[in-house]
Write a protein that binds this DNA or RNA. Structure first.
Length: 826
RNA sequence: GCGAAAGUGGCGGAACUGGUAGACGCGCUGGACUUAGAAUCCAGUGGGAGUUUUCUCAUAGGGGUUCGAGUCCCCUCUUUCGCACCA
């Protein structure tokens, strides 16, 4: 007796057949409708982990479903192969990132094949290879030419451990997202992409028909649009204006001081007149050295120093003190704040601490506010007081009125401010895409000409020997000649953030071997946008936002003709074990290789897809995997034992069908309908698989199929044969084998998407549940043809129902067609 | 603090538009087969009461709407995630 089905032989066999027939090679020229399924490409860290298996099993299920439906499906794969881990590994082990990265890619590739994912390897991209990164440099040049790439000196998040700059998105809780080291502030010349130029358009989510609300909310939050007013204060005794941004123009008459950050240009200027050891100077130095996160943590005490200077409030000519503080951010709004202690909690705390005057301008409904008695700021709406001609006005109404009035009198203007900052793309690391810039003493910043692209990353670099940018160690690379004047010049030694590489790879897949362009518009127009994108939620404000930005930029270059790159997005959950994400440090990793060797790829996939809906976390369970394996074995045994019945020809079969067989036929067609709609309408694979399991139970409920007449055997055979056609999406290898075994010479997907016959879903009898006052009191089986009145009569006649309506007046009888009868009796 | 999502058996989860709560799987209990185990098969499996028909409680907690609420509304609690001195 066979204990376990021979998954190993079967899986190898079908992988080879798929491969030989190139069924997953997508055609760029076809009249078939296209479907582009994309899972986020992996960082080649060494071997596939369960997270990858889970993620790609989802993509593969969708891909095979669409293939079966007759679409021209593209499901490509590649590697996000630049990045710091490879470089850090190389430093530790005295190797080279190129070698270890290529080795890892080879390992991963073998594992992709072992699981049998239907990927189009002809389109493979790897971001660290010159044929790919050449075009990243090309895009950088385009950004620069369009004024969207620029260099500025700024305070940046610096990780001492990784020796590089981090984008705001890469700082989590004041720590580096990769190594958990505390991030500090460092002033550096950096390259930026002007993503803020697209802020408004990035807030338009109307083209993403199927994005999780959560991701949209996170991006909205991240972009952080706020409407407000710019108000121009003037510096006392000069004509310098100091603009501030506020969302509370209604409180302008209550401004009693102005708060500036130490980075503010005016402050730097004033410090020149100060002694080096002056209190103000020392304070500014201290705050500047503190890292941004410490400064912006909510529990950090607000501190400041009076500058001795005053600003003039344009609305009433009031002289207000100018303070340097640690709680104002230079890179939000105008980098200056009008402080209204009575109506802003931060300003309130600060003013109390330093004994700065307070003035009420919004009175509460009880009219009880007195500055001396306040223990916190009053931030609710109210009635304006001490506000000149606006006294008595409702504060909410006055926002508009006051800012209009200020605008008319040139005191300020209504504006919009975003929280989103420009994208810092410079990285002071080796293993990334070189920025195609040459610095010339005569010509300044010069772009590397197109014919010299790509700027190749030199191999002979010294890693980890110095704390400076590694590329500086390759003098023959750094020192070059200016493309404009031919004089000696130096190359830019920063490389690009790897998020630049991953911001356009989805378009490269459309035309992966183009040597003239990143991709042709023709191919991009055919394939883009991606129909279904799959990846982790952790990229909500990073990769997914950058890719949207890049896509719009490519559109503005005329290269693509859609507004958004990803029509549908599925954010899959993590694979957890013992409630925690699988990770080496926690020691709860399960190696896919081991599981595939022991149970086969189909089992792992079925387990992953069955354990929970795709967007939720999957809790790993050894027993659950065995359950999936048991299920596939039961299917196998069914075919093995009943093969003769299943593969017979029933074209001339005739005979009477027993009620049990009619039930089985119902189950067959119901299951087809259920599985297809679970995939198509809900993308819920766990319930689809559950439906097949239930159907299998129904089949094995027929104890002696060999005793059935031919017509019944035909129904039995049909009920079995839908299994490979429905399980193909989740367990493709065993499905192909069963399909072939039962006498079919096509591949499963070539047989097309199986359809259900609605005629077999019509039941001759329907079970109605009877409720009395909302509680279930009985059931009746009624012919489908019964009228409402007949159903009512039968329901009221039910014995158990009688007990509950006895002695009561029937007030209402509600009949819900095909479901239940509800009796209201008092 | 702001924003979002979620809370259902011992566990993962189902219940799609308000209509039999707990599909399916895991685990567990009993039985069959076996010298024994593994595997497989059969039966049972939310709590309580009852010999059975059946009754009753139960979807974080408390209210409400409704003939009927896991599902809709209000309040409270808990968890997870994102943002967080953004003026």
């Amino acid at each position: 007796m066979i204990m376990e089905y021979p998954f190993e032989i079967i899986e190898k066999k079908w992988q080879k057949i798929w491969n030989d027939k190139k069924i997953f090679s997508a055609d760029n020229n076809t009249n078939k409708p296209k479907y582009y399924v994309l899972s986020m490409f992996p960082y080649p860290s060494g071997a596939l982990h369960m997270g990858h298996v889970s993620n790609y099993s989802i993509g593969d299920a969708i891909s095979r479903y669409k293939l079966t439906q007759g679409f021209n499906v593209m499901q490509p794969m590649g590697y996000d192969s630049f990045g710091m881990p490879a470089e850090n590994f190389a430093i530790k082990n005295n190797s080279h990132p190129r070698l270890t990265t290529e080795e890892n890619i080879a390992i991963m590739r073998k594992q992709f094949d072992m699981i049998g994912f239907g990927l189009d390897w002809d389109r493979e991209v790897s971001t660290c290879r010159p044929d790919y990164y050449k075009w990243g440099q090309w895009f950088f040049k385009k950004m620069y030419e369009k004024g969207l790439a620029y260099k500025k000196s700024s305070f940046v998040n610096w990780c001492d451990d990784c020796q590089t700059v981090l984008a705001n998105e890469q700082v989590e809780d004041g720590k580096c997202w990769r190594c958990d080291n505390v991030v500090r502030q460092k002033e550096l010349e950096q390259w930026f992409f002007r993503i803020t130029e697209y802020a408004e358009e990035l807030l338009d989510f109307s083209k993403m028909t199927d994005w999780p609300e959560r991701v949209i909310a996170m991006q909205k939050n991240w972009i952080g649009k706020s409407y407000g007013t710019r108000i121009d204060f003037t510096l006392e005794g000069s004509d310098t204006t100091i603009p501030v941004f506020t969302t509370r123009p209604d409180t302008i008459f209550g401004c009693t001081f102005m708060a500036l950050p130490p980075e503010h240009p005016l402050v730097s200027e004033w410090l020149k007149d100060e002694a080096a050891d002056s209190d103000l100077n020392q304070f500014c130095q201290k705050v500047l050295n503190e890292d941004k996160i410490m400064r912006s943590a909510e529990d950090t005490t607000k501190e400041g120093r009076f500058t001795g200077r005053f600003a003039i409030n344009p609305v009433n000519g009031d002289k207000v003190q100018i303070w340097v503080t640690n709680y104002v951010l230079m890179d939000y709004g105008t980098g200056a704040v009008m402080a209204v202690p009575t109506h802003d909690q931060r300003d309130f705390e600060f003013a109390r601490k330093y004994d700065i005057p307070m003035k009420i301008v919004i009175q509460n409904p009880e009219k009880t506010l007195v500055p001396e008695e306040m223990t916190e700021a009053y931030t609710e709406p109210g009635i304006l007081v001490n506000s000149g001609k606006f006294d008595g006005m409702d504060s909410d109404v006055s926002k508009e009125t006051i800012s209009n009035w200020m605008q008319e009198n040139n005191m300020g203007e209504q504006t919009i401010t975003y929280r989103l900052r420009d994208w810092g793309v410079s990285r002071q690391r080796y293993w990334g895409n070189p920025i195609p810039i040459i610095h010339c003493d005569h010509c300044g910043t010069v772009l590397v000409p197109d014919e010299d692209l790509p700027v190749q990353l030199p191999d002979n670099v010294q890693l980890g020997k110095t704390t400076q940018n590694p590329l500086l160690s390759v003098s023959e690379w750094v020192n070059t000649t200016c493309p404009k004047c031919g004089r000696p010049a130096r190359r830019e030694t920063d490389t690009m953030d790897t998020f630049v590489d991953s911001s356009w790879y989805f378009a490269r897949y459309a035309d992966a071997h183009n040597t003239e362009m990143p991709f042709s518009s023709e191919n991009a127009d055919y394939w883009l946008p991606v129909d279904q994108y799959i990846g982790g939620i952790e990229h909500a404000c990073m990769h997914l936002l950058y890719a949207r930005f890049f896509h719009k930029f490519m559109r503005d270059l005329g290269m693509v003709h859609s507004d958004e790159p990803f029509t549908r997005l599925l954010t899959q959950g993590m694979v957890t074990k013992d409630g925690a994400k699988m990770s080496k440090s926690k020691g709860n990793v399960v190696d896919p290789q081991y599981i595939v060797d022991r149970f086969g790829a189909d089992t792992v996939r079925v387990f992953m897809l069955f354990a929970s809906p795709p967007e939720k976390d999957v809790e790993w369970s050894d027993e659950g995997v065995k359950g999936a394996f048991r299920f596939l074995n039961r299917i196998w045994r069914l075919f093995d034992e009943r093969l003769e019945i299943i593969s017979a020809d029933y074209t001339k079969a005739a005979g009477h069908l027993s009620p049990a067989i009619k039930e089985l036929r119902y189950s067959t067609h119901f299951t087809i309908k259920k599985v297809l709609s679970d995939i198509e309408d809900r993308m819920q694979f766990n319930t689809a698989i559950a439906a097949v399991m239930e159907h299998l139970n129904n089949i094995t409920g027929i104890k002696h199929p060999e005793q059935l007449n031919d017509a019944e055997k035909a129904v039995f055979a049909e009920s079995c044969l839908i299994i490979p056609r429905l399980m193909y999406f989740f367990a493709p290898h065993i499905s192909e084998e069963l399909w072939a075994m039962s006498g079919h010479d096509t591949l499963v997907h070539e047989a097309g998407l199986i359809q259900w016959n609605p005629a077999f879903l019509i039941k001759s009898e329907i079970t109605y549940v009877i409720q009395v006052m909302g509680k279930v009191r009985g059931k009746i089986v009624v012919p489908t043809s019964a009228s409402q009145d007949e159903i009512k009569t039968l329901a009221l006649a039910n014995e158990n129902v009688q007990k509950f309506i006895e002695g009561k007046t029937i007030q209402k009888v509600i009949v819900i067609p095909k479901k239940l009868v509800s009796i209201v009796a008092k």
